[in-house]
């Protein structure tokens, strides 16, 4: 049962990431692309956690934690740049 659920979940997350990629490619304005990239990194965290579940290895959680932090910081930095034309005030 867990195997089937795992594969379904993996398929759904992969499809979600493809949709994000599509929005990042067409997205008419810069904030659209930025939002798509933001969603992409959040989904990639889930993908890495699922992969760690599959391999039964806890090391991958640290990678997920790092992605969460770096993704948030980069989103904020690019937003700041869009708002002010400058990152550090």
């Amino acid at each position: 049962m867990l195997d089937i659920a795992f594969w379904i979940s993996l398929a759904l997350f992969t499809a979600a990431m493809l949709l994000c990629l599509y929005r990042a490619a067409i997205g008419p304005d810069l904030p659209d692309r930025l939002l798509a990239l933001d969603t992409l990194y959040v989904n990639s965290i889930a993908l890495i956690v699922l992969f760690g579940l599959w391999l039964d290895d806890k090391t991958y959680f640290e990678a997920a934690l790092l992605i969460a932090m770096l993704g948030f910081i980069s989103t904020v930095a690019v937003c700041k740049y869009l708002l002010r034309g400058d990152i550090i005030e």
């Binding site: 379904i8 949709l19 969603t39």
Partner: peptide
Amino acid sequence: LIAGGAFAFIGALGLT
């Protein structure tokens, strides 16, 4: 697992 995947997929669907 399935609920998480479904929610993420719906979110991405909304994004597109």
